[in-house]
Write a protein that binds this DNA or RNA. Structure first.
Lengths: 326, 326
DNA sequence: AGGCTGCTTTAAAGCGCTTTAATATCGAGT
DNA sequence: ACTCGATATTAAAGCGCTTTAAAGCAGCCT
């Protein structure tokens, strides 16, 4: 390529990277030749020579629609800062650790971890190697930057919405063990307390999928469970959909007899025939803050860690209404 | 790292890559030191020096759940062949071409394109640079390897299923323009013809999403459309879900009054409360053939192109039943 | 003319590895 | 003791770039 135009490789490098220096004439000459030869700089070589990759690694679960949305936003944002993305997904057979190692091998300068599961200590250790931002997960300690949505507030706003509609008998369909389920559950309990409904707190064992919701619905419908609550807040949309399904099949009118609120604003919640009232998080904000945090540490030299907590928003659709007359 | 153990970098390289040569003693010494120092070989440097990246690029749409599934399988398969994956996704703001360029820049040795949209000629041009396999799309000419499922057969088997149940008035909800919609539609037309129902062919304009399905359902329900068919085969699951939604809201019983079949065996089709009869494709087979094709060309020296067409399978769930009595 | 300045270009070193060919080591065999 | 072959190790070149310092070259001033 350099030989082709009778210039040094240095000049070519300068032109190709758009660095100031070469004259207009040289620039044109090189660009023309590059075009003609279909020249593409070798990323590996640049990376090696430049000692900067300008690569940001993203750990994701390719099966998650929410992650998909985030990746879309990330691409756009990262580009504005002159970085590029490298994706690494977990799968059934590919652990989080393995996925992160791939990212490390690609010599990423920083990592965005979408919903990481690793223990906080491990993440902190990672962060000692390179800037890391965890998205969407609450983390004790402050070994990494965190950008997340206040899940407890989200659930609280769901409860408040129901209370405002007149509900008093509001059950919560739990999401199992884990930091996120715990946080959401606490949001429910606190909100109930604040509404003077502390004594009506009613926790139903659940899980994260449709099946869990279906089981929960069936247990609520057995007479031994006592009267059906007038509303139930579910850990997430998937379990809420399970609830809706069983209610629909057993002739329980939603929202006539029971109101249902989900969490996540999943695609499934938005489907017109589901129309689930739910709590969503602003993916654009989430990614914007995540990248900002990394760039600050990479280019701005910030060293202490920070946690950004964004407010969730309630989306009222068709599964909530005033309670049935008792 | 080499200095650390008092050996040459060559020896270290040999050990780290697991190449035969170094003695057991050396091997242990290096491995121990690597562990202690947290040494990770630099991918870029290896890539540059080895002149082989052993990387396979995957073009995908991170928003597609089917692609997600494929990526999961790909990771597992590729690993068995000693390759690694690099992912590049299209997004709202990131074109297919841009995504492919990224892959090229990473010096992939071959590309797996999941549902590529580029014209065949462009793909053929790409294939002149490196082995390319297109997954899931029918391609005229033979400029690249193709692995796909026989979409026409899939739709045909849906029609045959309905015919076997006794249906004669079977409409098809079209998927818009594009090679895949065209192929599926033809599958419908042919199957109808074979069943002696050529004169009952009934095409409804549609699209690929829930909205299109909803619009189609409404148009079917207006009296001007004539009598409601006893069954409708939809271009895909998403549009089928739109149909189901409108039917449910307007009190049209499925499958009592109308049977509905989708296509894709999406997650949404599997949800218990949807229970959509649909046509699925075996993602494991698809990826297995795709990688096999690439490996053969990469390591086996095959040069001509090939097309692998896999059979789809019908999944009968709860949205199909014998037709309503007329 | 000679010395400056400011702009453009390039030689050369080197990034962290792989690879090849050559060298070192060690018994075994004669 | 000496050669031979097998095995283990390494020196050195080089992958395709970036980067730094230095060189080349105008034009300008004194």
């Amino acid at each position: 390529m350099a030989a082709e135009v009778g210039l040094s490789t240095a000049s070519v490098s300068l032109v190709v990277r758009g660095v100031a220096g070469p004259s207009e004439a040289t620039r044109r000459r090189v660009l023309e030749a590059a075009e003609r030869l279909g020249y593409r700089p070798d990323r590996a070589a640049s990376l090696l020579a430049a000692r900067r990759s300008r690569l940001i690694g993203v750990l994701l679960d390719v099966r998650s629609t929410f992650h998909a949305e985030l990746v879309g936003d990330l691409h756009a944002i990262v580009e504005r800062h002159g970085y590029d993305l490298v994706l690494s997904t977990i799968t059934r057979t590919r652990s989080e650790q393995r996925a992160v190692e791939t990212l490390l091998d690609s010599r990423c300068e920083a990592l965005v971890l979408l919903g990481p599961e690793a223990p906080a200590s491990e993440l902190a250790a990672l962060d000692r190697q390179l800037p890391v931002v965890a998205v969407g997960r609450r983390l004790s300690g402050s070994g990494v930057d965190v950008v997340r949505v206040a899940d407890d507030e989200g659930v609280a706003s769901a409860v408040e919405h129901l209370v405002a509609l007149g509900h008093r008998d509001i059950a919560y369909l739990n999401g199992g063990t884990g930091t996120i389920p715990a946080l959401r559950r606490r949001g429910y309990e606190r909100a109930m307390g604040r509404a003077g409904l502390g004594s009506s707190v009613r926790l139903v064992p659940g899980g994260y999928d449709e099946d869990a919701g279906m089981r929960a619905a069936r247990s609520l419908l057995t007479s031994s469970a006592g009267e059906l609550p007038t509303a139930v807040v579910a850990f997430n949309d998937r379990s809420a959909v399970g609830l809706l399904d069983v209610f629909a099949r057993t002739g329980v009118d939603v929202p006539g007899q029971v109101s249902v609120v989900g969490y996540d604003d999943d695609l499934v919640a938005r489907l017109a025939h589901v129309g689930l009232t739910t709590v969503g998080q602003d993916s654009g904000q989430l990614t914007e803050h995540a990248i900002a945090a990394l760039v600050e540490r990479l280019d701005g030299g910030r060293t202490e860690h920070r946690e950004v907590v964004l407010p969730p928003y309630l989306v009222v659709r068709r599964t909530t209404a005033p309670p049935r007359p008792s």
